[in-house]
Design a protein around this nucleic acid. Sequence first.
RNA 1: GCCGGAGUGGUGGAAUUGGUAGACGCGCCGGACUCAAAAUCCGGUCCCCGCGAGGGGGUGUGGGUUCAAGUCCCACCUCCGGCACCA
Length: 831
Amino acid sequence: MSAPSLPAYDPAAVEAKAQARWMEDRVFEADDQGDQPFYCLSMFAYPSGQMHMGHVRCYTLGDVIARYQRLKGRTVLQPVGWDAFGLPAENAAIKNGVPPAEWTYANIDAMRGQFKRLGLALDWSREFATCDPSYYRWEQWMFLKLVEKGLVERQTTVVNWDPVDQTVLANEQVENGRGWRSGALIERREMPQWTLKITRYADELVDALETMDGWPEQVRTMQRNWIGRSEGVDIDFVVEAPAGQPPVSTLTVYTTRPDTFFGCTYVAVAPDHPLAKAAAETDPELAAFRAECQKVRAAEADLATQEKLGRPTPFTAIHPLTGVALPIWVANFVLMEYGTGAVMAVPGHDERDFEFAQKYGLPIVQVVAPQDGSDELADLTQGAYTSKQGQLVNSPGFDGLAFAEAFDGIASALEAKGAGRRRVNYRLRDWGVSRQRYWGCPIPMILCGSCGPVPVPEADLPVVLPTEVVFEGVSSPLKTDALAAWRQVACPRCGAAAERETDTFDTFMESSWYYARFACADNDTAMLDERAKKWTPVDHYVGGIEHAVLHLLYSRFYHKLLRDEGLVDSDEPFKRLLLLGMVLKDGRKMSKSAGNIVSPNELIDRHGADALRTFMMFAAPPDQTVEWSDSGVDGATRFLRRLWAQVQSHIADGPAPALDPCALDDAGKALRRLAHETLAKADDDFGRRLAFNTVVSSVMSLSNELGRYDGAGETARALRQEVLTIAVQVLSPIAPHICHQLWLALGHARPVLEGPWLAVDEAALARDEVDLVVQVNGKLRGKLSVPSGADQDAAQALALAEENVQRHVEGKTLRKVIYVPGKLLNFVVGG
RNA sequence: GCCGGAGUGGUGGAAUUGGUAGACGCGCCGGACUCAAAAUCCGGUCCCCGCGAGGGGGUGUGGGUUCAAGUCCCACCUCCGGCACCA
């Protein structure tokens, strides 16, 4: 060791110093007046009290993007806040007797400290928690606006009831028939609920997906499926009841295949359908069947291959185009929630109808046949022919037509008869936002015995959630006697004694607009102001794939509501979306139950935040799952230490002179070329590809090559200065603390994070000679260096001079030569 | 079942537009330094044959297109995610 006195890398000291400087300079407080605004946002965290690796990954990714954009000259906003309402606080309150507010704020304090240790370029001046009345009052205010606009309804609906969490869940929160948080089997209950009319925006939500090219295709597909738009026809049947049965006048079915209408041989209704209920009144067997279906629905909704079962009814439906009387069945595979709860069954051309018809001996009629010359088969004794590529048969007036014309023709015929209407149908249903929970935003409504539900007057906002509460069991303290005083109010309309709504909002309400509030979090006279128009839409949004439909669909909807209220002026909230993969350990998700949690705090203690961040970025591309590796962090630490040592030994000799690139020898030129290639690649990887793993690996390569470079003298020192300057800047968004210090050590006056991003010297990229791969019949036979402008003849001559190439070519006929300048030469020989 | 995405050394991954497969890291092997160890540094590391030069094989499987395929096409297998009787 020639210089044992060089300062050693001490991450704790380096990181404390850099963070203190940033805080002192207040560099991360975004300038609302700044040019070229760039809004970078990581999905805000639920304050569990413990930062975990998922947070580290998500926030580091966002931070890398934010810091890179800052280097590129953008005015960056990267705020932070807390998604602070929700069940865990209540569960903790029930378990430990700590009020949810107290528990939540203590957790936020703990997590704030943990987040700060990561060295994130966050604007803490805009921080807020959604459980603060100064935040949720605007959510209540917006809700009242939506009430005025008729976008809110109170509906008694069948809801998903979670018996463990004692609350209603949205469809999106039910996974395989179980609650997304509790895992309990979901029951179906009828309950009055406040709903937001998201279905009015269904078309816009689904259509916009087509142009949202900053979003992963996977997420767009998931949302498209979730909205589930289909184009079809409602068809009305006249229903005939036998004598003695109560009359039922008409039955409407929904179909997307009106082209197969002449193949309809029966009609099936859901067990919950009014017609099924009517028929069950005089048919005990049917009543038993309906009860059985309800039981199955509640308990085994996730059964994949449930047998198709049904019961006949005494009713018949008159086919509006043929006049034929068709039997009406009750079938367990028909869902009351979708379409009209009734289907026209075309067993010849629908697999479910086919299976059912075979089981119960119902007729199967073919009305679609493969096109002439098609190699499709349609054997209706084996199964339904469901292709839309066929042509109609046995359909008087429509025979020979293809799908589109047949759809149109039959739909028009039905419309002409007044027996049908074209209709666009959606799988998406309105968003039920009521939750029977305490720790949430109070719904600003008052229930009056004579007026019904009445909105809280705007002047009375916010309706503050009482925080001094005691839990008695699992139900909401808002419903207890202790809070009777909070609950009992005068009706704003008639003045009579009335009660507040005790349900609170779904927490997805808070997360649907927080990104906009960050633009103007200090405004206490309005929900949003002009700054929201400046900063939104979010330029880059980073978060977990688990929010692909839930949060990201609600936010898109809410943004349109804000737009229609004049509060923002864009159509979509998030321009570019990065959904990151999970962090695994031993192939499994880190969790307490699996006992495989790696604590970010301990890692920062041992290795520093920079090493943790570097490994996290290096281990895998952002959107893939990443396997945690302790030795991988060791590797990152080694790399940072090596870079540190390279800078220290370089600066030990004092300031470097200016570089004269012309004075470089070949090795020097090659090193300089690599440095500028690294710079150019990093720019592309950071900005376009979001491939931060390859940024790290290319800086590692550059550092390795610098280590191998043994040039001496002033020119070599000048080159090392340039190479290290590039390496440090390129790495700085990923390992910001060490790069902050090394950058200053290299003699730069202003901190590295101020930029500007270094310019690539095109001259440095130029090559005198390029490597050429020589193949014979596609097999690698040699490599050679040729002048970079070499034409095919010159390259060929050089290649044929190679012994090994010669060996494979001689005595054979040269049929063809493929030349890709700068890359490859391929001799195609024969004989 | 349907719709996405993915399958590359012992391992995490790289290969961006069809042009040297395995960059970079981890692990392992060997060496240097050391009384020794740790740390650090240097070298090696896809498989097979060969002392070597070199040759053969190789990106889940089987076909195909092409001078050339990890990359494109067809069929299939496995894994992950989503939806799931959606009429």
